[in-house]
């Protein structure tokens, strides 16, 4: 298959078409929407989701899930925010935040890959612990007097009206995509998710790859936490709550299969933009934000149901095609069927 054809058949391309379609529909209803500023605002507001969704994509690639990303993000935002608020060095605060992500990732990876505990359950446990630690860190107060310079970084633009953060996130996503598809170690993640036993038999260290996936997931969530603190400027003890589900939703919207081994991080990035844009688009369509959750739910369910039905149909068609090929290849059909 040629590269172009492959590109158009990719699952993330469907998601991209869906996103463009969404923008066009809103544009038809309200022509005022189709300006560069509005569209770039949709992309810019998705930066936190993008990072978390790319991290989550790693956990889903290997056939597991990580529901502690929301609290990892919240905790790193709280810790980094408090440090910066108290006048410490930014770099030090970033390092501490990333370190939190590393520790969380290693613990999750240990529990899931080494101890072989179902990932949903183990990360649910770490999620509770992290959320509690966050209350200890933030308490009933909020981190809300972050220095202005720190908050201003979030509105600096790099290319056109895209912010520095979003450009970095896109560069990171594209970089990860190439590492995942072009390097040997990158392909391990998909291989382990597709068939863990088979991957191990051909010499891929499955356990180490799984720990690595959780490590990346933790680090990206922690990085998302720093950006969250900078963008929103307020960290409460509930910040990041529910982001894990939105990240899963973004991955699914981006064509990543929850059973592992299928999809790409680019898809996760596109899914994140869809998730982030919905509430923004609703405003332009004249709906109140009350419709936000309902529409997200309808879109999510519709996409996965249509995808499942299409896959089932493709599987049936493939079976018929194989049968037809076999019977036509062998005259009389008997030898062909015996194969």
């Amino acid at each position: 298959m040629s590269a172009v054809k492959k590109f158009f058949k990719a699952r993330e391309f469907t998601s991209f078409l869906f996103l463009v379609g969404l923008f066009l529909i809103v544009g038809v209803i309200n022509p005022g929407f189709l300006t560069l500023d509005n569209i770039s605002a949709c992309f810019n507001s998705s930066v936190v989701y993008t990072l978390i969704a790319v991290g989550m994509a790693f956990a889903i690639f290997i056939g597991e899930i990580d529901v502690s990303v929301g609290s990892t993000m919240g905790l790193s935002a709280a810790v980094a925010g408090t440090m910066i608020q108290n006048g410490s060095n930014w770099l030090l605060a970033f390092l501490v935040a990333i370190l939190i992500g590393v520790v969380v990732g290693l613990v999750n990876g240990w529990g899931v890959a080494v101890m072989k505990i179902p990932s949903l359950i183990f990360t649910l446990g770490t999620n509770g612990i992290l959320r509690g630690l966050m209350y200890l860190q933030v308490g009933v107060e909020q981190v809300n007097s972050l220095p202005k310079e720190f908050k201003d970084v979030s509105s600096m633009t790099l290319i056109g009206s895209f912010t520095i953060y979003y450009c970095c996130a896109v560069a990171l996503t594209v970089g990860i995509h190439f590492l995942l598809t072009r390097t040997k170690r990158g392909r391990w993640f998909i291989a382990v998710g597709d068939n863990a036993g088979g991957a191990e038999l051909v010499g891929i260290p499955a356990t180490r790859t799984k720990v690595m996936a959780y490590l990346i997931c933790g680090v990206l969530s922690a990085a998302a936490g720093i950006i969250f603190a900078s963008r929103i400027g307020i960290v409460t003890s509930l910040s990041g709550n529910g982001y894990e589900m939105k990240a899963v939703a973004a991955c699914v919207l981006g064509g990543i299969s929850l059973s592992g081994g299928v999809g790409s991080v680019i898809g996760a990035g596109i899914g994140a933009v869809i998730m982030a844009s919905i509430s923004y688009l609703l405003v332009f369509m004249g709906f109140s934000s009350n419709y936000d959750n309902a529409i997200t739910g309808v879109i999510l369910i519709t996409i996965v149901v249509v995808d499942a039905l299409m896959q089932r149909r493709a599987a049936v068609n493939n079976r018929h095609a194989r049968l037809a090929a076999r019977t036509s290849a062998a005259p009389g059909g008997k030898e062909g069927l015996e194969q």
Binding site: L120, M245, V248, L258, N293, G297, L300, V304, D307, A308
Partner: peptide, 19 residues
């Protein structure tokens, strides 16, 4: 339809909260 339970009920949780 054979969709994963986690995804459908995730969508359901958004949908019914919204409803």
């Amino acid at each position: 339809c054979g969709v994963q339970a986690m995804v459908v009920t995730l969508g359901g949780s958004f949908l019914y909260t919204g409803l």
